[in-house]
């Protein structure tokens, strides 16, 4: 198996490692950085549980190889919590019960954050379309949409 030396900055911390060419980004984050908030649900790009930000854009961590992220800046759910970014969304997810088992939550937050920070409106249809790439098997989505709507309607920023 070919290996590569790569450096990825995760939540502000540069991590250098020798990895097999086929290791995907979410495994790198979980194994090399020890950050287990990003989850592996389907491993082929459908469920969205592995969604993280790479250079500011949400990416499926199971579809990107770690070597493709060499030199990139990655933000995970832990990084968001540390910097306070998205704190209103996190609060709304808690008060609206926008989570049950919580396995989809980190990926769902990443997608919701993109929508809110991108200036998305409180239009429920638009919100539903935006997050329909993230599966949740527990909640029926109602509370997730409610949480996002509330964040948009009640103030500035995510």
């Amino acid at each position: 198996m070919t290996t590569h030396d790569i450096t990825i900055t995760i939540n502000g911390e540069a991590i250098t490692a020798t990895v097999p060419a086929r290791r995907n980004l979410v495994d790198f984050i979980r194994q090399e950085a020890g950050l287990t908030g990003s989850h592996v649900g389907c491993e082929h790009g459908v469920c969205g549980a592995c969604t993280v930000e790479v250079n500011g854009t949400p990416v499926r961590g199971c579809l990107m190889l770690a070597v493709q992220a060499d030199g990139a800046h990655v933000t995970t759910v832990e990084g968001l919590a540390d910097t306070g970014r998205g704190h209103r969304l996190r609060a709304a997810f808690q008060t609206h019960n926008a989570l049950q088992c919580g396995f989809c939550t980190p990926g769902m937050l990443a997608s919701a954050l993109e929508y809110v920070e991108g200036g998305g409106t409180a239009d429920r249809t638009a919100i539903r379309e935006h997050i329909s790439g993230n599966y949740c098997r527990c909640t029926g989505y109602q509370a997730i949409v409610d949480a996002i709507v509330e964040v948009i309607e009640t103030g500035e920023g995510a």
């Binding site: 979980r30 020890g34 950050l35 287990t36 908030g37 990003s38 989850h39 592996v40 995970t76 759910v77 832990e78 919590a81 996190r90 997810f93 808690q94 008060t95 019960n97 989570l99 049950q100 919580g102 396995f103 939550t105 980190p106 937050l109």
Partner: peptide
């Protein structure tokens, strides 16, 4: 009341079996 682990879930700190350090 919200789910007891809600705060852990939104910060990525809730541990599932695959997350337990071994």
């Amino acid at each position: 009341l919200p789910h007891d682990a809600a705060r852990l879930h939104v910060t990525g700190a809730a541990r599932y079996v695959d997350d337990i350090p071994l």
